[in-house]
Each structure stands twice: as C-alpha cells, then as structure tokens.
Design a protein around this nucleic acid. Structure first.
Lengths: 234, 234
DNA sequence: CGTTGCTTTGATGCCCGTCAATGATTGTGG
DNA sequence: CCACAATCATTGACGGGCATCAAAGCAACG
C-alpha cells in the first residue's frame, strides 16, 4: 500500500518511458529499491539526518510523517516539505544532505544505502527515470512553495495548506483531514508565526469554510470557497 | 567559456562518478548536448516559454540573463531564479513547464529538443549524471530560497541577494558587481516591494557596506559585514 | 487533580506595503 | 544637440498586516 502510494507520486511529471514501465509493473523499480534496504524506526521529534551530514542513505517512509527543514543560526526555521507514508527522500543530494529530516511522529522507514541505490540506477533505466521524476516533482513543489512564501497573504497560505492536505487525500467537501503536524510546524512551513496560523484557522472556522473538531483534524466544509481564496489551482 | 561556467555549476553536489568524468573531459557531456541544439535569440522582456506549455526544448544560455517565474492570477509574481551565461534550464520538467522563462536582456540560447536530450541521456551515462546534478543543485537553491522568503527580514534578503551576486563572480571587497535585473525583478525575487528593496539598498549604501554608482552596478565594500548580516553561509 | 505542553485569544507595536511625489536616466523627434 | 516624454529609481508619509508579548483555555499525563 505504501508502495502503491509512491508509484503514484508524480504521474504528472513522469516521462512517457517511465510511465509505461511503471504502468506495466507498478512497483517494479521501487520494490527493487526496497529490497536493498532495511527497516528503521524513529521516535517522535528525533532527527533522521542533519543538514551537512554525509548523504549515506536514501529513505522511504513506511509509516509516519517526516519534516524536511532548514535552520538559521539564531533558531529561525523553515520547513520545506512534509512527507508521509509512501514518500521517498534523501536521494536528492549527492555529497551531503542540504537540509534536516526529522520524524514528527513515530515513523518507520526503509533505509537504502546511497551507494547501492546509485548502482541500481546505473543498471536499471526505470529506476533512474523514477528518481529523475521524483526530483522534478520535488522541484516543482518547491517552486510553488516559493510563490506561497513570497507573494501570498497569511490567510491564503493557510488555505493553501489545507487544500494541499485535501489534495493528498483526494478529499471532498465534508471529508475530515488528519493533521499530524503541530501548529508550530504549520507556521514554520508557511513562514508565519503560530499565532497568525491560529487566527487564520479560527477565521476560516467562523466563516464555516472548515471545521476544527480537535487539534489534529480539520473538516473541509466548503472546498470551492477555499479554492476561491487560494486564488490558483492547488 | 560559457561551457566552462556550466561545467563548474554544481561541484558541491556532483557525485564522485560525475565529478571524475567531468574532471577528465570538462565539457564532454555539454558539448554533446549543444551539438544537438540550435541558436535562438530572445529580445529584452520576451517570453521563452510559459508555465503550462509543452516542455519541448531545454535551453542553455550563451549570452544574456533569464528569469524563471511563477505568477498568480491577479498579477503577483515570484521569481524563482535568475540564470546567466552558461546556465542550463528547461530540462527540469517532463511534460509541461511548471514556470515561465523570460529574457531580461537580449539573450542568446542554445535550444535542444527534449526528445533528443532524453535519447542522449539514455545513451550516455555522464549526460544522465550531469542532468541529475543540475537538478539537485536547482532543488538545493530553491530550498535556500524558501528559507530566505519564509524567515528572513527585508534587509537580510537584500544582503543575501548581493552576496549571491558576489558569490557567482567570486567577488572580494572592492569588486564591482553587474546587476542586470531591474529593481522590480529584485523585489519579485526577494518577495518584497520595489520600495522596500530601494530603501534597503540605500541603507546599505549609507552604512558603507556597498557602493551604488548606478542602477546596474553594486560595489562590494565590506564583504565580512554583509556576511554578518545575512547570518548564514552564502 | 494538578502539572505540563500545546493552542487560542487579546493588546500592542513595528516592519513593510501602499500611496504619492521627486529625481535620475534613457530614448526620441525636432 | 537639445527638448521632451517615458521609464525607472528613490525618498517620504502613512496605514495595515503580521509579529510580539501576555494571559487564558484545553487536552493528555502522571
């Protein structure tokens, strides 16, 4: 199931060739990759690797959630991406990791030595293609994130965040979304303070666009109106 | 010379293998790529490709400067990257471009059909490696940009921008930097308004950290102090 | 049931955006 | 070569959105 999620990760940016092969044998490259790895467990709020570490392993999430972030020396933090079961990461750098990966809840991963992954990439064209597609997808995600951080208001950012959660789950109006990250993580992802995130969420709640039964769930009440606020296709 | 610039583009993130091959024959993969392409010219402020277009070509800049940007429907713009002679772009997407490329001054490029580039990638391992390294580098650049947009102040952003210009030219205190982009472009790159950029530049000028002889040049007067303000290695 | 950590809400202030005017530079036609 | 317009850059005045500071809710835990 986690395999399946990863195979469907970046269909939009997959090359024709990669798509054909993945289509023919959905988890082909990935199962080969996973065969090279071993399971590892990380507890809540533990570091998987740090910015600057030698990039010895690539990872695939089996269960849990991971945040990728960069820090300034004074402690300011920017989260680049949240990753969930099925997502693949750590293959994006050749020498050293350029950011830090932390488990934000108890997380199980498959850990694959980079040397082996590189060798597999040499041998198998489909694996090479898949890595390329994943990279392209990450880049595309990052570029949309740039637009959000540089040019959107606090309300728009929070709405975009909710819509991104909804898109991942293919949620419709009425569906409930799991929110595994705390408010501070959301703030650091959106380039805001925790208070501003709270206020924006409360505002959406008052406007009946979302419901907030508790701190780890959000109910999508009016998807169309949310999309209207975000202002561009998410 | 532009070839050389591209070969040295991402040494920090190049794999040992890629480095060895590139080291042995510096412009090997790139000259092969360029042989597949044809020259094209774009006048100032013309569009090379638009967000959503079919990704038919990849490009390498021979002369000039290009901006990659994303737009919101109401006109707000975020520039993801400035590219200069030697830089390679447009290979980052498999189906459609995910952002818009515009010439910000008269620009000459080598235009390579994507189909040919993909074929060359299949045949030549070093080309595949080079593309991978370029992608990784772009991703790393984007992630640093996220930190800038999400967590740095206006002054820090402008200083980071100046330092990035300086780094590209390996400039030392006293050196003059060419600034081919207008203030509005800088603002859209830094997620600020043009007025805030101007004020920050003026402030740096008053503090004798930089000199501004005219709108297209900046003189680095105190590199160490600038680095101090930016707060992290650039 | 108190403690602890996270979240929410309120009060206040500041950084940066907005609006506006002036200055500097470039291009054009007489 | 100059006059003029057009464009871009700079500076100032002002206001708003978000950060900061502070306190009160609220759920999970021992």
């Amino acid at each position: 199931m986690s395999i399946h999620a990863a195979a469907g990760f970046a269909p939009k940016y997959a090359s024709p060739v990669a798509r054909a092969k993945i289509g023919a044998a959905p988890d082909d490259g990935l199962s080969a990759i996973q065969a090279l790895g071993q399971l590892a467990h990380y507890a809540r709020d533990t570091t998987i690797f740090s910015d600057g570490d030698d990039a010895l392993y690539a990872y695939k999430i089996v269960k849990g959630t991971v945040r990728l972030c960069k820090m300034l020396s004074d402690g300011r933090r920017q989260i680049a991406e949240f990753l969930r079961a099925g997502d693949f990461f750590g293959f994006e750098w050749r020498d050293a990791y350029s950011l830090t990966a932390e488990a934000l809840e108890d997380t199980v991963v498959v850990r694959v030595p980079r040397a082996r992954l590189d060798r597999l990439g040499e041998e198998r064209r489909d694996v090479q293609h898949m890595l390329m597609s994943l990279l392209c997808n990450d880049l595309c995600v990052a570029q949309n994130h740039l637009l959000l951080l540089g040019r959107q208001t606090a309300r728009e950012r929070v709405v975009s965040f909710v819509l991104a959660l909804a898109a991942r789950n293919k949620a419709k109006s009425g569906d409930t979304l799991a929110v595994p990250m705390c408010r501070q993580d959301i703030a650091d992802y959106l380039g805001l303070t925790i208070e501003t995130v709270c206020r924006a969420i409360s505002e959406l709640k008052r406007a009946r666009l979302i419901g907030v039964p508790n701190r780890t769930q959000i109910v999508v009440l009016n998807l169309a109106a949310l999309r209207e606020i975000a202002g561009h296709d998410a």
